[in-house]
Each structure stands twice: as C-alpha cells, then as structure tokens.
Amino acid sequence: MNTPAAGIAPAVVWPESLSLPSSVTLPAPAKLNLMLHIVGQREDGYHLLQTQFQFLDFCDQLTFELTGEHSGGIELISEMKDVAAEENLIVKAGRQLQRCHPDRILPDVRITLEKRIPMGGGVGGGSSDCATALIALNYLWQLNMTVDQLAEIGVSLGADVPVFVRGNAAWAEGIGEQLTPIYLPEPYFVVLIPDCHISTAKIFSNKELTRDSRIMKIAPALEQGGHNDCEPIVRSLYPEVDEAVSWLAQFSKTQMTGTGACVFAGFKDKETAIKILCQKPENWQGFVAQGKNISPLFSKLSEFIES
C-alpha cells in the first residue's frame, strides 16, 4: 500500500471555552496501536513501551444532559449490566472532576452510553469513554481546566486515557503517558473481533513476553513501522486470534492491537476494505473504519466553536 510520509504534528488546540447545549451527544472513538514494542519494565512492575496510537472513525456515543438539579448526581444509563455505574470510568471521570472543585455545587448530569466499541478488544473503548466524559463535563460544568490537567486526571484512571484527552494521533513512550503528536497516513482498516476476552494483566505477566525490544527514535519508527510484542503470546493462548490474523494476512500486513483481541489490516480505499470484510467467515464479527489523526471528538466539538 503506497502511503505518504509520516512525521511529527502540531498538537490539537482545544478551545478554552465552549457554549454547549444542555443536552449534547458526542463521540468516543476507538483507537489502534499500529505497533507495540515493550522496551523494559520498571521496579513497580509497569512495562515501558513504545507505541503509535491512531484513532478510528468508529465510535461509542455519549449523550450528556444537565437535569437542572444541583445535588452532585451523575446518572449513567447503559446496557453494560456487568459493570456497576460507580465503577464505570465515565462516572469515575465525573467524580474526579467534582473532587477537584469541592467548593462548587455542580449541576447533576445524566449520561447515556451507546456502546459500539467491543469490550476487551484492545481498541480503547473504556478509556475513550472516560476521556469524552472528562472533556464534555469540563465544558458543561464550565470548569475551565486545561488539557494538561484533564490528561493528568486521565492517567490516574487509565494509561490510555491521555491520548484520547489530547486528541492527536501520537507516538507514546513510558507507560504510554509520554505523548508526541504525529501525523500518519489515514487508510481504511478492516478490524476483526475474535470471540474472546483477553486479560491485559495476564498477557503482561506472561514469562514468555518480550521485554527488551530495541528502543527506536520516532522518525525511523514512523518510516519503518513495527510489530506488537504481545501478539505471539496472545496467538499462542487464543486460537481465535491466531485464526483471525492468519486469515486477514492473506490480503495485507495484519497485526493485533494492544493486548488484543482485535486484529487489523489497512487498505488504500474504503471499497477494497469493505470487499475484504464481506469475505470473512459468517460467524466472525468485524467492521471497516478509517484511521484519523485528529480525534472525531475534537472534530465534533469544533462545530460548537463560536465564530
């Protein structure tokens, strides 16, 4: 697939304030790890990595409604019955914002989650929902917090949250919190969803996991690409993932994202990607989405910027 060169990008500049309606629906995009190299491990057990994040135009939808009450209430309406509301990252995001402003009585909010992003697939659905909540409530509650402050709250809730808060495709280092905005080709991806739920902790604790990949600089990594150090372990433990990678690799370079289970391959146009997806076995799940260097959340909120 012929693609233009990639490189360092300017950071997204979020508006200092927005006038949002009291009821607004916003996207929470999925992401892909286009590579995931594990280059070391800290004494506290956290793994040091190098990865490339890119968003997809495949999103959960969150509707925020200010109810008119002022009792500190955060109501989450969701079909995710296996996760208690107060344990959901969306509600945790709101509670963290409330704790940052103990002197203010903030309006009650009702949040309705329409879930599309598969759970446990390595495409960041929970982290993205959390980031959308942080950004939306910052505007709706008129808190005037900076993106750095929101990203700091985000990393306390999940290592992948800051990339969604900042809104740029990114090169990430450290435990994933050291972000450099990048621009990348924006192909159309076929994403397959193997029928298995993978524990990140289980993969990262596996003794066979490679933890000493060569440290790369950004420019050669963007030019040469990379691999996913977690993929061999996951493929050996989960035959569903191995089968999906093998099948999709017939058509293009195929990788797993994050610690799985989703696998992906890029194509130059939407029609080709859809044609490939239509050939998958009938009992498999998957979707086509375009890679995006600017978060669909930022693009949507830009519609509310006052001219």
Rank of each mutant, 00 (worst) to 15 (best):
D44M: 10
H47A: 10
L48H: 08
Q50R: 10
F55A: 08
L56E: 10
D57N: 15
D57L: 04
C59M: 04
Q61E: 15
G68A: 10
E69V: 05
E75N: 07
E75R: 14
L76T: 01
I77W: 01
I77E: 03
S78E: 03
M80I: 15
M80E: 05
D82E: 13
A85N: 06
A85R: 11
A85Y: 00
E86Q: 14
N88D: 12
L89W: 02
V91P: 03
K92P: 11
R95L: 12
L97G: 05
L97Y: 02
H101S: 11
L106N: 10
V109F: 03
T112I: 13
K115G: 09
R116E: 11
I117H: 09
P118V: 07
M119K: 07
G122F: 07
G122M: 09
G122R: 04
V123C: 13
V123G: 11
V123R: 00
V123Q: 02
G124M: 09
G125T: 07
S128I: 06
S128T: 14
D129T: 11
L134Q: 02
L134T: 03
L134G: 08
A136F: 02
N138F: 03
N138W: 01
Y139W: 07
M145C: 08
T146C: 05
Q149Y: 04
L150C: 04
G154A: 06
V155T: 15
G158K: 04
D160V: 05
V161Y: 01
V165I: 10
V165Y: 02
G167M: 07
A170D: 07
E173Q: 15
G174M: 03
G176C: 02
